[in-house]
Write a protein that binds this DNA or RNA. Structure first.
Length: 882
RNA sequence: GGGUGGUUAGUUCAGCUGGUAGAACGCUACGUUGACAUCGUAGAGGUCGUUGGUUCGAGUCCAAUAUCACCCACCA
């Protein structure tokens, strides 16, 4: 066994091997077993052509921890992986690729373009899956899904048709966000608003048959070409006499009315607002109210169209400049001011959005939002952390209809057919060749595809075969928890919830665990353009997946952003190395005849009971933390247990037994060492799956893989209070002795005689039992006892403990000043403590209102510290006399 | 204009239901004892952004304020 564990931990030796071992044996694939409970997580599908970044690494690590833990707890744990076709972003990439080859989407035509996109998908798709495997994700690859799979596409069409038939999907001419670069409509959620420096122009519109004019304010003078009215507030006395009159639009000469509408803010700008229904969402609504009609002046490429008269053909920002200049020349421009406002940008390509009137498909949101809100209020949804619930509510309460049609080719084509004879609209999964109404064969299919989030919204059930009543769907749905970044609550989380409620009548998951963003060490968002992204694969290559996983899950808290420090990965790699070497130690000192290590029928020493008690407490706490999604706290506790309790203390305390010649003591130590290590590996496994599995398989008495083991449960028979107390006393005595010796610059290797001065029998017994420990851990040469210290001379170091004092005689001349200095420090420490306790105890309110237990504790502390202080004072007095 | 989060050791962050402030990294001193120098032992370092309030007691609850970050939003 031992020869298989090299001296240094090198994850590259086994991570890939173990991943294949698990995966090839089908350990990631659950069975449909009605006698066991399922636990399901749907992996947020990464973009099929994407590559792994730290955000993926973070949320997949969290999912893997949860799924491995639940699997060990005995659930049939399904973690379903997959990828997303990511319509717009993939299409943009393929278009770019074509462009670099001197080709274009248009010249290729739809079918050939989709071929190209599939090729691209096959070429770059799947790399992210291999990258995920490096991380150790235990997801069920036999159920791997892709949003454009036949099964999932079927679900998409089914939902579309159902919603259409319920009048929850409609088609209409509405003002939408148009990206002139991607050449498609996008939804509100896909628009990023960024503050930008700009100007506000005050323009005077002359009033017909009058010398008067009305001054309007605008940030987009070029849109005046499409003005259909000037609006003022109904209560605005400055303008009330003008309402109903006509204005002559400068430059173009068109006549438009002055209307009153309460949308106008009287105290902003001039209080008069130009209305351009075709190019501004608010103006659109005003236009609807006043039946102004439409007048489109900007086309889908962002150029002024034929309605723009002499400005026709100008690019929109060029037009802005020229229109403004022209207005100035002709004397209509009153003033130009600096002005900041939020401008909408395409989330994908950063182009400034152009609001346009366009015929698009929409999902009617209000009827869908309502049940989603109710589900939340009924407590069917639980956000971790809770505060995201508010964001969910706010969005749903202010929701607008969802524009789902995209003028793209890569994606799910709408199952919609138009009859050009009778203008019937037919929705159908099957291709339609004859109109169902007039039987004409003058039929064409809608060319638009669906928003990529339309298919992702169905992910929790489309992946399980819905609308078919599959066994998978029956058993694994609804899922248990969704783990994703808070940045896609609006895009994805909410849409999954309302889709699931609408189609299946229940929420798709109960818990929503939201992770923060992983930032660079300076707190900046990692991005390609900044070039500050840290590649998870490089980190894995250098430090191993376990170290990366541990880093991502500790030291941060759900929903909060974290900074990524390579130094932390290094520290966690060191932790893995520590565990590795602790195991080597255990195996090195394990007798061959111990085949099935166990603590059954074994005489446990105090230190054994102590470590078993600590382990038991750890099991309890880890379980409690995991139940509350406090993964970082759980991981931290396992870390501390291994490094401090197990390595620094237990192993050190047990060495004298292992090296000694008492066979019984030796064997019991060997058994306890292995038993504790095994349970610890189980507890650590979800966090560090590779190293724990590797070590596990080198231990004796193993009959199955760690990944399949049972989760260790708390056992109250493993609490040993007395033993714990004695070991804690011994620990504090050893620390005190080491401390004093270090302060006095006594070389650690130099052995010392220890004289314990105490009249407390329990302490005497404890110390006697712990003699070996003092020998090895406190470099003791001998141990003796005295009932009082009167006979002891001055050339000693004195270590004050509770109910006990330890004297260390010095062979050389003691540096009295230094010892006095050290004891003075001790004295101050106890004085501070006593002072603090006194303050509390002399507080009438504390005595009467604090719990009695607490008051007693404080009284006991006072007694203890006073006692210790007195010892220090006596010692000081004695030294000062000498 | 609304809303949320952060502000705790030199740095990055934990700190669950209020009861003597923790970790990691870094730093200082010492140490090649037969698991580990990817290590060990000991140590230094914090009036928990500010001001009030509730309480016997507040990093922890409440209010205000400063500052940074983010999200939402139709003031042209």
């Amino acid at each position: 066994m031992l020869e298989n564990l090299p001296k240094n931990y090198d994850p590259k030796d086994f991570e890939d091997r173990l991943y294949s071992f698990w995966n090839d044996n089908g350990y990631f694939t659950p069975e449909i077993n009605k006698d066991k409970r399922p636990f399901t997580i749907m992996m947020p599908p990464p973009n099929v052509t994407g590559s792994l970044h730290m955000g993926h690494a973070l949320n997949n690590t969290i999912q893997d921890i949860l799924i491995r833990w639940k699997r060990m707890e005995g659930f049939e744990a399904l973690w379903l992986p997959g990828t997303d076709h990511a319509s717009i972003s993939t299409e943009v990439k393929v278009v770019e690729k074509l462009k670099s080859e001197g080709r274009s989407k248009e010249e290729l035509g739809r079918e050939a373009f989709i071929e190209e996109a599939w090729e691209w998908t096959h070429l770059y798709g799947g790399t992210i899956k291999n990258q995920l495997k490096k991380l150790g994700v235990s997801c069920d690859w036999s159920r791997d899904r892709f949003t454009l799979d036949e099964m999932l596409s079927n679900a998409v069409e089914e939902v579309f048709i159902r919603l259409y038939e319920k009048d929850l999907i409609y088609r209409g001419d509405r003002i939408i966000n148009w990206c002139p670069s991607c050449h498609t409509a996008i939804s509100d959620a896909e628009v990023d608003h960024e503050d930008s420096h700009g100007h506000i122009w005050h323009i005077k519109y002359p009033i017909k048959d009058s010398n008067e004019g009305i001054v309007i304010a605008t940030t987009r003078p070029e849109t005046m070409l499409g003005d259909l009215a000037v609006a003022v507030h109904p209560d605005d006395e400055r303008y009330s006499h003008l309402v109903g009159q006509t204005v002559i639009l400068p430059l173009v000469g068109r006549e438009i009315p002055i209307i009153a509408d309460s949308y106008v803010e009287m105290d902003f700008g001039t209080g008069a607002l130009k209305i351009t229904p075709s190019h501004d969402p608010n103006d659109f609504e005003v236009g609807e109210r006043h039946k102004l009609g439409q007048f489109i002046v900007i086309d889908e490429d962002g150029y002024i169209n034929e309605n723009g008269g002499e400005f026709r053909g100008l690019e929109r920002f060029e037009a802005r400049k020229i229109v403004a200049e022209k207005l100035k020349e002709e004397g209509f421009l009153v003033e130009v001011k600096e002005h900041d406002n939020a401008v909408g940008h395409c989330e994908r390509c950063k182009t400034i959005i152009e609001p346009l009137i366009s015929k698009q498909w929409f999902v009617k949101m209000e009827p869908l939002a309502k049940p989603s809100l109710e589900a939340y209020y009924k407590g069917e949804l639980n956000f971790v952390p809770e505060r995201f619930g508010k964001i969910y509510v706010h969005w749903l309460e202010n929701i607008k209809d969802w524009c789902i049609s995209r003028q793209l080719w890569w994606g799910h084509r709408l199952p919609v057919y138009y009859c050009d004879e009778c203008h019937e609209i037919i929705v159908s999964k099957e291709p339609i060749h004859h109109c169902t109404k007039c039987n004409s064969d003058n039929i064409r299919q809608e060319t638009d595809t669906l928003d990529t989030w339309f298919s992702s919204a169905l992910w929790p059930f489309s992946t399980l075969g819905w609308p078919e009543k599959t066994e998978d769907l029956e058993y694994f749905f609804p899922t248990d928890v969704l783990v994703t970044g808070y940045d896609i609550i609006f895009f994805w989380v909410i849409r999954m919830i309302f889709s699931s409620i609408e189609q299946l009548g229940e929420v798709p998951f109960k818990d929503v665990f939201l992770t923060g963003l992983v930032r660079d060490s300076q707190g900046r968002k990692m991005s390609k353009s900044l070039g500050n992204g840290i590649d998870p694969l490089e980190i894995i290559e250098q430090y191993g997946a376990d170290a990366l996983r541990f880093t991502l899950v500790t030291g941060n808290t759900p929903g909060n952003d974290m900074r990524f420090y390579t130094e932390r990965v290094e520290a966690n790699r060191n932790f893995a190395n520590k565990l590795w070497n602790a195991t080597r130690f255990v195996l090195m000192n394990l007798d061959e005849e111990i085949k099935e290590p166990s603590i059954e029928g074994i005489n446990l020493e105090d230190e054994d009971k102590w470590i078993l008690g600590r382990l038991n407490k750890l099991k309890k706490e880890v379980k409690s933390n995991l139940d509350k999604y406090e993964l970082g706290l759980a991981a931290q506790k396992v870390y501390e247990f291994i490094w401090e309790d197990y390595c620094d203390w237990y192993i050190e305390m047990v060495k004298s037994r292992l090296y000694g010649d008492n066979k019984g003591l030796k064997e019991s130590a060997q058994n306890v060492l292995v038993v504790v290590l095994k349970d610890t590996l189980k507890l650590l496994h979800p966090f560090m799956p590779f190293i724990t599995e590797e070590i596990w398989q080198h231990l004796p008495g193993i009959n199955k893989a760690l990944i399949l083991e049972d989760w260790p449960m708390e056992d109250s028979s493993m609490d040993f209070n007395e033993a714990e107390k004695s070991i804690e006393f011994i620990k504090s005595a050893i620390k005190g002795i080491r401390n004093a010796r270090a302060e006095m610059n006594i070389v650690p290797s130099k052995k010392a005689s220890l004289i314990f001065v105490t009249d407390n029998e329990d302490i005497k017994t404890t110390v006697e039992k712990g003699t070996k420990k003092f020998m090895t851990l406190a470099s003791a040469e001998s141990i003796s006892f005295k009932n009082d210290k009167t006979s002891l001379g001055d050339d000693n170091i004195s270590v004050v403990l509770e109910k006990c004092e330890v004297f260390i005689p010095l062979k050389e001349l003691i540096d009295f000043d230094k010892e006095i200095e050290r004891l003075e420090k001790e004295k101050d420490k106890y004085l501070d403590e006593i002072n603090r306790v006194d303050n509390k105890l002399s507080n009438e309110g504390f005595i009467s209102k604090a719990p009695a237990k607490l008051v007693d504790e404080e009284k006991a502390k006072k007694e203890k510290y006073t006692d210790m202080l007195n010892n220090v004072l006596e010692r000081l007095e004695s030294l000062k006399k000498a």
